[in-house]
Simulated assay, not measured.
Amino acid sequence: MQLKAGGSDRFPVLTHLSYDASDPFAVAVSFSHEGRVLARWSLDREMLAEGIRRPVGEGDVRLRPQSTGRWQELRMEFFGDPHPDGSRHHAVILAWAPAVMSFLHETYEVVAPGRESIHVDDFLAEVMGGC
């Protein structure tokens, strides 16, 4: 994947996508450069798939397809903590869309779309235990 900086500059960023069936709605993403983790995000798996086809997201994560000539990309925008001037940290990552879709297809072999489930009792016990 590539980190977009400024108007048109792009820099490679090592990206690790992972999926765990115990959290079937989420895809974990970590971005690193020169051995240092820059950021970790948890993305909604369905939102990630939709973002390849159409713009999605209104909050801290926004995804949309982007075509650069013959390349189909997924544009991922991440918004972080505010700066003192009121603006927010903002990062744009560009991924080759077919590679993201390939990863998603592998997750579908683990847990098919629509077959995700959450054990409500376990979830409530975890939430209530934190109080």
Rank of each mutant, 00 (worst) to 15 (best):
R40L: 07
G51K: 05
G59M: 11
I52M: 13
Q72D: 15
G69I: 05
A39P: 05
R53Y: 09
T68W: 12
E73H: 13
S30T: 09
P24Q: 04
E46V: 12
P55R: 08
F31P: 01
R64T: 09
F31M: 06
R54T: 06
R45H: 07
V56R: 12
G57D: 04
M76N: 03
E46W: 10
E77R: 07
S67Y: 10
L38E: 00
W41K: 02
L43E: 01
R62H: 10
M76S: 02
S32F: 00
L74F: 06
G57K: 09
S67I: 13
R54K: 15
G69C: 05
P55W: 07
R53S: 15
S42H: 12
V37A: 04
H33K: 11
V37P: 01
R64P: 06
D44R: 09
A39Y: 00
A49K: 08
R64N: 08
R54A: 12
M76P: 02
A26M: 10
D44L: 11
R54P: 05
P55G: 07
A49I: 01
I52A: 15
V37G: 00
R40E: 15
P24S: 08
G35I: 02
V27H: 04
R53E: 15
V29Q: 02
R36K: 13
F25P: 00
L48N: 03
H33C: 10
L63W: 04
V37K: 09
P65T: 05
V27R: 04
D60M: 11
L63V: 04
P55C: 08
R75G: 00
R70G: 10
L63R: 06
R64E: 15
E50H: 09
R62W: 09
R45I: 08
W41M: 04
P24A: 04
Q72A: 10
Q66L: 15
M76I: 10
M47R: 12
H33E: 08
A49C: 09
L48F: 02
H33V: 06
E58M: 11
V56I: 14
V61S: 04
R75W: 11
Q66E: 14
W71K: 13
G57I: 07
V56W: 03
L74M: 07
G69Q: 02
W71C: 10
R62S: 08
M76G: 01
F31V: 00
D44P: 03
H33M: 12
F31W: 12
R36V: 14
E50Y: 01
S67A: 14
W41I: 05
T68V: 14
P24G: 05
P65A: 03
P55E: 07
P65W: 01
L74V: 03
D60N: 14
E34C: 01
E46R: 13
G35S: 00
L43G: 02
Q66K: 12
A26N: 06
A28P: 02
A39C: 04
L48A: 03
E46A: 15
P65G: 01
A28I: 03
L43I: 10
P65H: 05
E73G: 06
M47Y: 05
S30G: 03
G35P: 00
